[in-house]
């Protein structure tokens, strides 16, 4: 199995282009393998559909990760700095 990871914004510094994970049964496990700093808050899309920590991943899936920030929100502080 191979899952393509797309990172946006400030996450790009942690996730090089064309990163692929071979053994990542769920979004949560994929993110754990990426070894992001511990206090990231993320929005996740799998094949351009809303996903969450438990969403299952399959061969050929594209997992897109975005840092969470927005107006007036209570955010995990460092998320946008990543």
């Amino acid at each position: 199995m191979s899952v393509l990871i797309e990172a946006t914004g400030s996450l790009r510094q942690y996730i090089p282009e064309n990163t692929r994970l071979e053994a990542a049964p769920t979004v949560g496990q994929a993110i754990a393998q990426l070894q992001l700093p511990p206090d990231v808050a993320l929005m996740m899309l799998v094949n351009r559909k809303a996903a969450d920590w438990t969403t299952e991943l399959h061969d050929g899936d594209v997992l897109r990760l975005m840092p969470t920030i927005g107006g007036g929100a209570r955010h995990a502080g460092r998320a946008a700095n990543l």
Partner: peptide, 23 residues
């Protein structure tokens, strides 16, 4: 500088494009 850098660097507009990607 690390925990609130998002606010200084990009401010609240920083998340707009990402939110749009999520509808």
């Amino acid at each position: 500088k690390t925990l609130a850098a998002w606010a200084h660097d990009k401010g609240t507009p920083g998340g707009l494009v990402g939110l749009n990607e999520n509808s």
